[in-house]
């Protein structure tokens, strides 16, 4: 088979973490430079990047029902799960960057995996609009965020079990996506905007980004005493940062 250069030029530039890769020749010595790679970029605080204020209110309300606050640990909202999802949807994940998106699209069996031409960003946008329409039509013209906890739970459980259908979008798939994303935001490094102050890690006793347990591997059945650290460090390590 012959490949045509014209087609190639348009199709082959490859992205790695947003940086276009270039072919290079390596010989004579290892080409490394310290910290020359792509260190993670912390999610920046500030306004929503993807969500509208109304969408964000719904997501925060959902996050707080998936992970409700309790006396020891904040819920999904205060832990920053909505910020996490917002930053993810605004980035490569939202656009399904790197995934295979060529047509044709067929539904297939569930064992064949997701087959959708819409990426997560598009799916969230559609589903949140449909959820809003559902709530306004069935719950006295209120938005999801304005419902009682029991009403919110009833709707979420309804989406989960497919008892409640959303117009023009698959409610169950939306529920599964948001369940996964809220829980990932809760447990991921605070770098990404969720797990604020490492609350999720403190809740379970996970020490985070520590990298050396040699002194501890043979100390069996003892509680590990040190607090968690993030890839960005921890407050006590950085003078001037609370």
């Amino acid at each position: 088979m012959r490949l045509h250069r014209r087609d190639l030029l348009a199709s082959t530039a490859v992205l790695f973490g947003g940086i276009t890769a270039h072919a290079s020749i390596v010989s004579g010595a290892l080409p490394w430079q310290p910290s020359a790679g792509t260190p993670p970029e912390p999610a920046r605080p500030g306004p929503w990047l993807f969500f509208t204020n109304e969408e964000a209110a719904a997501i925060e309300a959902i996050a707080d029902r998936i992970i409700p606050p309790d006396p020891q640990t904040p819920g999904g909202k205060d832990a920053g799960c909505a910020v996490f999802i917002d930053r993810q949807l605004a980035g490569p994940y939202g656009r399904q960057e790197g995934l295979y998106t060529a047509a044709p699209f067929h539904k297939g069996k569930k064992e064949q995996g997701p087959q959708s031409d819409a990426g997560p960003a598009e799916q969230y946008r559609k589903a949140l609009a449909a959820l809003d329409r559902y709530c306004r039509a069935n719950r006295n013209n209120r938005a999801f965020a304005d419902l009682s906890d029991a009403e919110k739970d009833d709707i979420l459980a309804g989406l989960e079990s497919s008892r409640i259908a959303l117009e023009g979008t698959n409610g169950k798939e939306f529920f599964e996506a948001i369940l996964k994303d809220v829980q990932q935001g809760f447990f991921a490094d605070p770098l990404y905007g969720g797990n604020r102050d490492m609350v999720a890690w403190k809740m379970i006793g996970y020490p985070g980004a520590r990298y050396d347990y040699r002194d501890w591997v043979s100390r069996h059945n003892e509680r590990f005493p040190l607090p968690p650290v993030s890839i960005m460090g921890r407050p006590g390590w950085m003078p001037g940062k609370a």
Binding site: P34, S35, G37, A209
Partner: peptide, 11 residues
Amino acid sequence: PTDFPPTSAQD
């Protein structure tokens, strides 16, 4: 050292 230094490999 470039791609998975112990400062950010644990992500």
